[in-house]
Amino acid sequence: MSQDKEPRRRFLRQVLAIVPAASTLGGASAVAVSQPAIADSSEPGKPRAYTPTFFTAAEWAFINAAVDPLIPSDQYGAGALETGVPEFIDRQMETPYGAGKLWYMQGPFHTDRVPELGYQLSLVPRDIYRQGIAAVNSWCQKTHGKVFAELDKKTQIEVLKQLEGGKIELDALPAKTFFNFMLGNVKEGYFADPMYGGNQKMGGWKMVGFPGARADFADWVDQYNVKYPYGPVSILGEKG
C-alpha cells in the first residue's frame, strides 16, 4: 500500500464501492450468512483472541501471513491483521457460503477460465483454501525450502505477486484464481460489519470515513465536500 495517505484512502474507497459484501467468484453474499461475532475484548491495535474452527494450524499461519501484505497497517490506519480479517475468513468457511451452497455447482467444469462465463471450477470456497494453501506451501517448500508463513516478509510479498500474475504453477487450481479469491475475501473482511468477525473496532470504515449503520443522515445530504464529523456505528450498535 502506498505511504501517501490520499492514494491509500482512494484505493480503499474504490474497494468499498466495488466489493460491498459480495463474493468475488460466486456473486453470492459472503457476509450475510455468518453469525454475530463475540464481544470484543482485545487490546487497542490488536484483534481479539480467536481460535480457528475450519483452518488447521498450518493453514491459519498461512492466512495470517498472507493477508498482512494485502492490506497492511500504517500510520494512517489499521490493516487486515489488526481488524481481524483472518477471523472473518475462517468463520465464513463454516457457513453455507463456505460449502458452496450459495453457488451453482453443476458441471461442466473447466480449469481454463473463460472470463465471460465466470467461475468454472468444481471447488467450493473451503476447497479453494484447503487445496490452494497446500499447493502454495508445497511450491514454497520446493522453491525456497520453507512453507509460506516461514518465509521472510520480502519473499512472501514476491510469492503473492507471482500468484497474482499467474507465474506459479499450482496443481490444485490456477494461481490467479486462488490469489483473487483470497484477495476478495480480505476486502470483504476489512469492510464488512464487525458482527461478521472482521473490521474490528471498525478500522476499515474509519480508514475511508464510512459512517456505518447510522440511521439518520438527513442533516448531511446537502452538505457537499464536508467531512462527516461522527464516528461509525455497527449494526449491533457498537460505536467507533
Rank of each mutant, 00 (worst) to 15 (best):
E59H: 10
V31N: 13
K5M: 07
G212K: 06
A37N: 03
Q106S: 14
V19A: 00
M105L: 05
L25E: 01
H144A: 08
S42W: 06
R10H: 07
G231C: 04
L12N: 05
G145T: 02
Q3E: 12
W220F: 10
P194Q: 12
A17D: 02
L123H: 13
K46E: 05
V221L: 11
Q75F: 03
S2E: 11
G100M: 09
A215C: 13
K153M: 03
V67F: 07
E116Q: 14
P125E: 05
G100E: 03
V208M: 04
L183V: 15
L25Q: 02
L121N: 03
L25A: 08
A175V: 00
D152Y: 13
I157K: 02
G79W: 00
E238P: 10
T155E: 03
V221C: 07
T24N: 10
F54K: 09
K206S: 00
L81M: 03
V226W: 11
F178N: 08
V221Y: 12
Y129H: 11
Q3C: 06
A215N: 07
A17H: 04
G118M: 01
G132V: 04
D171S: 03
I63S: 00
D68A: 12
V15T: 09
E116A: 15
L163C: 14
P52D: 02
W103Q: 12
I133V: 06
Y230A: 15
A28S: 14
A175C: 01
V186L: 08
S29V: 11
A32R: 03
K5F: 15
P47Y: 14
V114Y: 06
T111A: 05
I63T: 12
A78Q: 12
Q14K: 14
G145C: 08
K146N: 09
D90R: 01
K5Q: 14
E188D: 12
G209L: 07
